[in-house]
């Protein structure tokens, strides 16, 4: 987000340099054209985003099965969810566990790999491709099928473990390990996060490292004092989007574990999907959606508020720590 804001301020200074008269003439001519050009998005936003948001909010206070008209029930849905729905509590805690582990794991791995890949050696493109490859296919149902087979009771993973004399469990059919298996699958697909880190690393001015070397800084010192602060905006971007994305994990739980065993992988998105499209409780599902939105929005706000203490922007002249 911040990246966009920075770019926006740059363009503004560019337009300022134009003669005032010419600028105002161009702007008036562009009023209509501007709206014509953004109209596809604007239309889509109003029709498929804004209106649905409003309707979803309304529906969350109703009972609605698609067949009959919505019936206003006040805050019943919310009250039921919070006081009388054990599945809600379960799926929320499962999802929190998933986010809590998979987001930091993915960030850590992708940063480490990005640093390893940010070198100028022969064949680097080959390595990048190989390492990116799982992320290319990772979200597909095909990989979910593969995963389900590999982590089955007599699947490949247990056969390898048997070599080492370890007796494996049914990774997917055991409620203690099923969520961990999904977290592992999620971490395996760290490619796009890694690519963004890689792009960030390329923007770090080499002079900083050189002058640090002159001052006698070692590798670790350079990493802590240069790489980490310079990467913090990218880290922030990945963290915010990572949290939002993880809360919506659906396919892997839906295909590999079907939410089980005993709801140990019943992710929130899957719970919501089943409420809406299996039980046709559209009002209840809408309330669930608004709870999800509130949680995600709250976490994002906390993230933004906390960012001023650890995210470093060059344009501030290094005011922040």
């Amino acid at each position: 987000m911040t990246i966009g804001v920075i770019a926006d301020s740059k363009t503004r200074t560019q337009t300022k340099s134009m003669p005032v008269k010419e600028k105002s003439k161009r702007i008036s001519g562009q009023q209509l054209a501007g709206y014509i050009f953004i109209s596809p998005w604007l239309l889509g936003f109003l029709l498929l985003t804004l209106w649905p948001i409003a309707q979803s909010f309304y529906l969350s206070f109703t009972e609605y099965s698609l067949l009959e008209d919505p019936v206003w029930t006040g805050t019943d849905n919310y009250v039921n969810i919070f006081t009388d729905d054990a599945t809600f509590t379960k799926s929320l805690s499962v999802t929190f566990m998933f986010v809590l582990f998979s987001v930091p794991l993915k960030l850590f791995f992708s940063l480490m790999v990005a640093i390893a890949l940010n070198k100028n050696i022969k064949g680097m493109n080959l390595y990048r491709t190989a390492i990116y490859f799982p992320s290319l296919i990772g979200g597909s149902i095909a990989v979910a099928a593969l995963w389900r087979n590999m982590f089955g009771l007599d699947g490949y993973v247990n056969q390898v473990l048997a070599w080492f004399g370890i007796e494996g469990v049914g990774w997917i059919s055991n409620p203690d390990t099923s969520l961990g298996t999904l977290i592992l699958l999620n971490t395996w697909q760290f490619g796009s996060t890694m690519v963004i880190f890689l792009a960030g690393l390329k923007q770090v001015p080499q002079e900083l490292y050189e002058s640090a070397s002159v001052d006698g800084a070692g590798k670790v010192r350079k990493f802590i004092s240069i790489t980490l602060p310079m990467l913090s905006p990218v880290m922030f971007f990945n963290l915010v989007l990572g949290i939002i994305g993880s809360f919506q994990t659906f396919t892997s739980a839906f295909i590999i574990t079907k939410g089980g065993p005993i709801n140990s992988t019943y992710m929130y998105a899957m719970f919501l999907y089943e409420k809406a499209f299996k039980h046709y409780q559209m009002g209840y599902a809408s309330a669930l959606a608004w709870i999800l939105l509130s949680i995600v929005a709250l976490l994002t706000l906390i993230n933004f508020a906390a960012s001023r203490y650890w995210v470093f922007y060059e344009s501030d002249g290094g005011k922040t720590k």
């Binding site: 985003t49 649905p52 979803s56 608004w290 939105l293 995600v296």
Partner: peptide
């Protein structure tokens, strides 16, 4: 909108 969870819009979109 990039940060909006799709779950919020999916039910009304389906209805539509």
């Amino acid at each position: 909108t990039m940060m909006l969870p799709g779950q919020v819009t999916v039910v009304p979109q389906y209805i539509l």
